[in-house]
Design a protein around this nucleic acid. Structure first.
Lengths: 188, 188
DNA sequence: CCTACCGATCGGTAGG
DNA sequence: CCTACCGATCGGTAGG
């Protein structure tokens, strides 16, 4: 589908320049069409942004669900989830960057659909942490805050990670998972 | 100075809308001038952005240096630095948001001046962590990565914190500091 | 510090 | 999917 190609190109352009700095002309050039032709496949720049955010959340949630073993203990679940999440972000850097940094450019209409989905994604993390508190493994006064901290560690990587850098994505993912889990686990 | 007022207004507008979504007209309106009059005090929109980033780094570095006791142990230093940093960000939310999220809108000329300053700021954190590794207090395989993780926890708050929310800034600062330090400290 | 204005570019539409 | 074009707005300047 051409629409998929346009979405991918838009994610790249939005991810590199930011939503408002990117133009429909930039996207048209990336898919080798004229700007006006984009509007046969897409109704507006806003709808394109919303489509990217949907796709990004779909992929990330799907990956995490596929990786999580329901019978594992809370500690292992969080470790697996965190590593999977970070590796998926490294695999789809443009989608991730747009999801995490550009959603504020969404206008009301689309934002009201998106924010609840994003909140549900955040709730997955909070529930994983709550399970670890209930089991007695974690020493943590507030699961919601811990989820924000955990997501801060993971999400912040989109602002600085580049594939050619000193460390590979999976190394970063493991080290961050170790640090976060060490921070959550109870001390004896 | 009127220039200071313009900088403050610009930080607010850039912080709320993002650099490219904000117009010089928006800033003029906020300081009750005509758009053209801004150019008597400021040479360009880019220079405004650069001025905000300078001011933000100046304030944050000054605060941290004032709070740090050189004779304290590494663990206490990091705790104090982290709490001070987060409270300063809560006190200057617009400057902080622009510093952390809008620097990529800087054009080459200004970016080349800014990035080294920002890197030096990051180096402060890495060195604090290295001191803790040397003293034997921290169990951490890579100080640079730990600094990125720590900054992720702190910096990510600019994307979600609002003064009227469930938790106050100083509570968040303390909880994040506890989590990060717990993550860094060696287990016995 | 203002009014008036510039060329460029924006998102989007008409019509085929 | 194209050419041609729209009104609106952009950052910035001229001139006083």
């Amino acid at each position: 589908m051409i629409r998929e190609d346009i979405l991918t190109a838009a994610a790249q352009v939005f991810g590199e320049k930011g939503f408002h700095a990117a133009s429909m002309q930039d996207i048209a050039q990336a898919v080798e069409l004229r700007k006006a032709s984009l509007y046969y496949h897409v109704s507006s720049k806003q709808e394109l942004l919303a489509g990217i955010l949907d796709r990004a959340l779909d992929i990330l949630i799907e990956r995490m669900e596929a990786a999580l073993d329901p019978s594992a203990n809370p500690e292992d679940k969080i470790r697996i989830a965190l590593i999977t999440y970070q590796e998926a972000m490294a695999e789809y850097p443009n989608l991730s960057a747009v999801l995490l940094l550009e959603h504020r450019s969404l206008e009301q209409k689309y934002r009201r659909r998106h924010i609840p989905r994003r909140d549900r994604f955040e709730a997955i993390w909070r529930e994983l942490i709550e399970a670890g508190i209930r089991s007695g493994a974690f020493d943590c006064p507030d699961a919601g805050m811990a989820a924000k901290a955990l997501l801060g560690v993971a999400n912040w990587t989109v602002t600085w990670f580049h594939p050619g850098g000193r460390m590979k994505a999976d190394e970063i993912a493991k080290m961050n998972a170790n640090l976060v889990l060490n921070g959550l686990l109870k001390r004896n």
